[in-house]
């Protein structure tokens, strides 16, 4: 009875808090929805500049959703800004990685690139894992890893500590360990893609050996090419191309995903 009373109080408090948050955020969301619709109208009318402006204002205010980034990518590609288009498609892919429309348009935008990304030389197994992981978001991957980890610990507690069940935990533990290992092996690349990935925005730019405009050029980057940001020094980023080449590039030429 006493527990029921405590749970009831807790439930009332949480419900009240959630309701309060919802009420306080409701106005912002509805305004954002309005801006999104205006962006759609501009896009449908062929006014891609305005569409970019409307969608972009939402992104600048910190709003995010897969369709928002997808539409923004579409508007940029229609404007002829392939680099920005690919950038926002990649952002959208982090939120809705299995969306068929998005993947099709991303392929289309990449077909417009002057030079394609140089394929990463990775063992076949790791490439399979990368491909499998590309169908889920990083949040889902991390959640799955924690779910499996918690499940394994719970199984140990129930079967080994309290011995409350006659189930033999070996097979479930092996299965969970296998999937957990797969996720943990594939996660670093996923993190790299998410946390360090950047897209080249300039039509063509030289990556230099040192963070200076007068430094020797090391290799070129073309619009839409993907790089990984290793570190930042003022306005210069030390980047790594997908084939492993490293150099420095100034900030207006790339943007982080």
């Amino acid at each position: 009875m006493r527990h029921f009373f405590l749970i009831s109080i807790l439930f009332v408090h949480v419900a009240g808090l959630a309701g309060g948050l919802n009420v306080s955020g409701g106005g912002g969301i509805s305004r954002a929805q309005g801006a999104f619709t205006e962006g759609n109208t501009a896009y449908e009318n062929g006014d891609y500049e305005k569409a970019v402006e409307e969608y972009g204002s939402l992104a600048e205010k910190g709003f995010e959703s897969g369709p928002l980034y997808y539409n923004l990518g579409n508007a940029y590609v229609k404007k002829g800004d392939i680099g920005k288009g690919i950038l926002f498609y990649e952002k959208a892919r982090q939120l809705m990685p299995r969306d068929g429309d998005l993947l099709a348009n991303l392929r289309y935008a990449k077909s417009k690139m002057k030079r394609h990304d140089i394929p990463v030389k990775r063992p076949v197994v790791l490439r399979w894992l990368d491909m499998a992981m590309s169908y889920i978001t990083i949040r889902q991957a991390v959640f799955a890893a924690f779910f499996l980890y918690y499940g394994m610990i719970a199984l140990i507690i129930v079967t080994k500590v309290f011995k409350k069940t006659t189930i033999t935990p070996t097979l479930p533990m092996l299965i969970m360990s296998f999937f957990l290992a797969i996720i943990l092996i594939a996660l670093p690349q996923k993190f790299r893609d998410t946390e360090r990935g950047a897209i080249t925005l300039s039509r063509i730019t030289d990556v230099r050996l040192e963070p200076s405009d007068t430094a020797e050029p090391a290799f070129p980057l073309y619009e839409g090419m993907k790089v990984y940001i290793l570190r930042q020094k003022g306005e210069w980023f030390k980047v790594k191309r997908t084939d492993g080449k490293v150099g420095w590039i100034s900030s207006p030429n790339i943007e982080a995903i």
């Binding site: 955020g25 954002a32 929805q33 709003f63 995010e64 809705m96």
Partner: peptide, 8 residues
């Protein structure tokens, strides 16, 4: 549809 539009 804007989908699950929310603050990041």
């Amino acid at each position: 549809s804007a989908g699950d539009l929310r603050k990041a």
